[in-house]
């Protein structure tokens, strides 16, 4: 019996105009992620790591190739609904003006998540405590969070929506070691619960990674699977 992978990408292509000429940033990238996978994506600067994440999240205009989630083709899914299941956390933390609670609840007010029940204030409190943010009040203005706190709130905002696949773009790029460790722990727990993670890493290697990928010249190498 062949089990369909959680996420399957085939022949992803992307062309970008750089200095007046078209460069194939992604030149036929194939990728499969199984439940529980934490795939670490590395590659030289400008190799298209972010572009690959955007393409998988269907956030890249003009990207080619095919995507499927749990065997279901992306073509059959509304792009906004796809993004609720294959969730990208952009590199630059973008919390919106307002309180921590408003930010955590925002995804549940979107039409693409119509019918989903937003978590209660108690659940939000517990979730914050869980990721080492017990000193952050729900009504704290996001402008008054430290960089490390904001990064964890932004990651929590995505995790609370229970996506199937998590795409992280250098989630710990500007974090101290303690915050980075908290982010890694949050990611690991998501994978243990059956999610799949694709994470661009630049500084630190993720010790929990089960797959290591290397993107260069528009093509994906590696794919060595660490058995835990």
């Amino acid at each position: 019996m062949v089990v369909a992978p959680l996420l399957a990408a085939r022949g992803l292509t992307a062309v970008r105009a750089i200095d007046g000429r078209d460069v194939r940033v992604l030149d036929g990238v194939d990728l499969k992620l199984a439940p529980g996978d934490i795939a670490e994506l590395r590659g030289p600067s400008g190799a298209g790591k972010t572009t690959l994440l955007l393409a998988i999240a269907r956030l890249l205009p003009g990207a080619g190739g095919s995507l499927a989630l749990a065997g279901e083709s992306a073509d059959a899914t509304d792009p906004a609904v796809w993004r609720t299941k294959v969730a990208l956390l952009p590199q630059r933390t973008a919390l919106f003006p307002g309180t921590v609670e408003e930010n955590l609840l925002l995804p549940f007010a979107l039409k693409s998540r119509d019918g989903a029940t937003p978590p209660s204030a108690e659940a939000l409190r517990a979730a914050l405590d869980d990721v080492g943010l017990s000193d952050v009040a729900l009504d704290r203005d996001t402008a008054r969070l430290s960089v490390g706190q904001a990064a964890r709130v932004a990651l929590l905002r995505v995790l609370l929506t229970a996506p199937r696949v998590l795409l992280l773009d250098e989630p710990d790029a500007s974090l101290d070691d303690a915050s980075a460790a908290a982010v890694a722990a949050m990611t690991a727990r998501f994978a243990e619960a059956g999610g799949a993670v694709l994470r661009v890493s630049h500084l630190r290697a993720d010790a929990a990674a089960t797959v290591r990928l290397h993107l260069e010249g528009g093509r994906l190498g590696g794919g060595d699977r660490d058995d835990r």
Partner: peptide
């Protein structure tokens, strides 16, 4: 806007 769209905003 990228963050919002990634969260499923139309």
């Amino acid at each position: 806007i990228l963050a919002l769209t990634a969260l499923g905003a139309d």
